[in-house]
């Protein structure tokens, strides 16, 4: 089972998220992550959905999503032709002895310290899922108190864009 990233343009109004989420549960699809936010057009939101499954599942997810009236457009993003990011906030135990080591690690990962207390450091890390996971792994030895993660968001490389006005149907219209 591999992961696939779908970029989905939807109407920006109440109830859309529950329709999308409901569709996944009732058709038995597994959502790895879902991130949603408004786009450059305030009437339109963009969801980035990462699904786990084979070719059949991803095709079904796309087609079923496309049937929702609130879904305007779907595009499956090519792993190599897109940039994906997720953001994590990680709170680790820190004391005078460990603090500088943690700071070094954070620098190596080009993450940021965003809060500090006598006993903790809070780190903001963004990047691909793999990178954030690697940082998390390195921080484990100090004692992770709390992790908060966003879902993945993704955008295509180069001059390709996904817009409402762009009428091409993408790859999903069998």
């Amino acid at each position: 089972m591999s992961k696939h990233t779908l970029s989905v343009l939807v109407e920006n109004h109440a109830g859309v998220l529950s329709r999308v989420a409901g569709l996944f549960s009732r058709r038995g699809f597994n959502i790895d992550s879902l991130a949603v936010g408004v786009t450059e057009n305030p009437d339109v939101s963009r969801m980035t959905i990462v699904v786990e499954g084979d070719e059949y599942i991803v095709e079904q997810v796309s087609k079923q999503l496309n049937k929702l009236v609130d879904v305007i457009k779907i595009k499956r993003l090519d792993k190599h032709e897109s940039i994906t990011r997720e953001l994590s906030l990680i709170k680790v135990s820190a004391n005078a002895a460990t603090r500088s080591e943690i700071v070094q690690l954070v620098e190596i990962f080009r993450a940021k310290i965003v809060d500090v207390s006598k006993t903790t450091l809070t780190i903001e890390a963004s990047g691909s899922g793999d990178k954030v996971a690697a940082l998390e792994d390195m921080l484990k030895q100090f004692g992770i108190k709390e992790i908060v993660r966003t879902g993945t968001i993704a955008i295509e490389r180069g001059n390709r864009i996904i817009k409402v006005t762009n009428n091409e149907e993408g790859e999903i219209n069998g």
């Binding site: 059949y56 095709e59 079904q60 087609k63 079923q64 496309n66 049937k67 999903i172 219209n173 069998g174």
Partner: peptide
Amino acid sequence: VDPAEIGKNIDVSIPLV
């Protein structure tokens, strides 16, 4: 007329929406 029905329950040689 519904693309989601094609390929859902049976493998299809020639899909036509």
